[in-house]
Simulated scan of single mutants.
Amino acid sequence: MRKVMIMVLVAAMSVMMVTAAFAGAKEKVKVGFVYISPVGDEGYSYAQDQGRLAIDKLPWVETSYVESVPEGPDSERVVLNFARKGYDVIFGTSFGYMDPMVKVSKKFPGVSFMHCSGFKTTPNMSNYFGRMYQARYLTGLVAGLMTKSDVIGYVAAFPIPEVIRGINAFTLGVRAVNPEATVRVVWTKTWYDPALEKDAAISLLDMKADVITQHQDSPGPQEAAQERGKYSIAYNSDMSKMAPKAHLTAAVWNWAPLFKNVVEQVRDGVWQGNESLWWGMDQGVVDIAPFGPMVPKDVQDKVLAAKQEIIKGNNVIFAGPISDQNGKVMVPAGKSMTDPEMLGMMWFVEGVIGNTK
């Protein structure tokens, strides 16, 4: 009898715990997205919006978005408007939305705020990103194996750790298979300006680059490479239809798994702020696009083998020895960079030609 009573008590406590966990559960979750550029740009906002469309198919999710929102006061106004309208989750998808989101989150403690690529959190605001450096490394392997001039051009937006980390991972991939190759960087100081991005790519092509890649939101650099009869590696999404004769592959986002995880937690009343989500290739958030027909099978096989090693955790990318542009050892042999070190990276690895300003 005593054993039976204990079993009944344990069962009752389990029911109480489950009930408590789901006490804040919602029947409907309203989700708002704020984008830095047009969703039709085939780039960063397009990739984020593909994730939104994926969760919008869930019967208990309702989504909305505002595109082309500049960083600064405008973004604060848009985030505030979503909060006032009773949205349960607000995704701010650009780095410059960070401080405005922190400010608004403090006024609406019952709303869940998710900021992309930043580092600040509050009790009801987390940040999220993906380990894009993993995909960047793989695309670097492709570039290093496909270049003939040993000059690779990189059109980059802003000199912040996110962008610098991607350039470095790409260069490590290039140099792993082609130690003589260099990666030339041109800064545009804009996330989305198709004409300027294309001009920057042209300047790199004029410097003998025969492969162009980018940390930009438009296909401008891809189009420049195709017009010159050179190769290109895209970013954010598969841009092969924009430059089919040039497109080798792309480092791409798949935000659907992460977005689904967040909205499920909000629905179930278990979401918590003050967290940083940094998902990788093993969780399906980052990947590479299908190879273009000009990429030889042996190159494809080598890259796909490296991809499997990353997924298994056998290739951490930023493992020593790694030196900076001046030959100074930044990561000794036998050591690997920690997440905080990678998130704060503000120096270029050996093989990059350019500055971090």
Results as ranks from 00 to 15, higher is better:
residue 174 V to A: 12
residue 17 M to Q: 14
residue 126 S to I: 03
residue 260 K to H: 03
residue 5 M to C: 08
residue 314 N to S: 12
residue 317 I to R: 07
residue 231 Y to F: 15
residue 234 A to D: 11
residue 299 V to W: 04
residue 157 A to E: 01
residue 312 K to W: 00
residue 223 E to P: 07
residue 73 P to W: 10
residue 170 F to Q: 11
residue 135 A to L: 05
residue 310 I to T: 02
residue 116 C to I: 00
residue 8 V to F: 05
residue 63 T to H: 01
residue 219 P to V: 07
residue 213 T to K: 08
residue 229 G to D: 14
residue 196 L to P: 02
residue 188 T to Y: 01
residue 180 E to N: 15
residue 89 V to N: 02
residue 69 V to N: 06
residue 249 T to C: 08
residue 293 P to N: 13
residue 52 R to K: 09
residue 218 S to M: 06
residue 136 R to C: 08
residue 93 T to K: 00
residue 95 F to I: 03
residue 112 S to L: 01
residue 238 D to T: 09
residue 294 M to K: 15
residue 239 M to P: 11
residue 203 S to M: 14
residue 205 L to N: 13
residue 256 A to W: 00
residue 227 E to V: 09
residue 23 A to S: 13
residue 230 K to S: 10
residue 302 K to S: 15
residue 210 D to R: 06
residue 230 K to N: 10
residue 290 P to W: 14
residue 117 S to V: 05
residue 135 A to E: 03
residue 96 G to C: 06
residue 31 V to F: 01
residue 138 L to M: 12
residue 131 R to F: 08
residue 162 E to C: 02
residue 7 M to R: 15
residue 70 P to S: 07
residue 278 W to F: 15
residue 182 T to A: 09
residue 269 G to M: 09
residue 176 A to C: 06
residue 53 L to H: 05
residue 147 T to A: 12
residue 156 A to I: 03
residue 229 G to A: 13
residue 234 A to C: 13
residue 297 K to G: 11
residue 236 N to L: 04
residue 295 V to Q: 09
residue 143 A to P: 06
residue 102 V to F: 05
residue 247 H to F: 15
residue 16 M to N: 05
residue 306 A to Q: 14
residue 233 I to L: 10
residue 207 M to I: 01
residue 236 N to Y: 09
residue 118 G to D: 05
residue 88 D to R: 02
residue 145 L to P: 03
residue 200 A to D: 07
residue 169 A to W: 05
residue 71 E to A: 14
residue 357 K to Y: 10
residue 191 W to S: 00
residue 328 K to R: 11
residue 166 G to S: 11
residue 6 I to F: 10
residue 351 G to Q: 02
residue 158 F to S: 00
residue 130 G to K: 04
residue 309 E to I: 05
residue 152 I to R: 11
residue 180 E to T: 14
residue 353 I to C: 08
residue 140 G to F: 01
residue 311 I to Y: 04
residue 172 L to T: 05
residue 50 Q to S: 08
residue 186 V to Q: 08
residue 352 V to K: 03
residue 21 A to I: 07
residue 211 V to H: 08
residue 164 I to N: 07
residue 301 D to M: 06
residue 41 D to N: 05
residue 219 P to I: 04
residue 136 R to S: 08
residue 181 A to P: 10
residue 167 I to E: 12
residue 258 L to M: 09
residue 209 A to V: 07
residue 55 I to F: 00
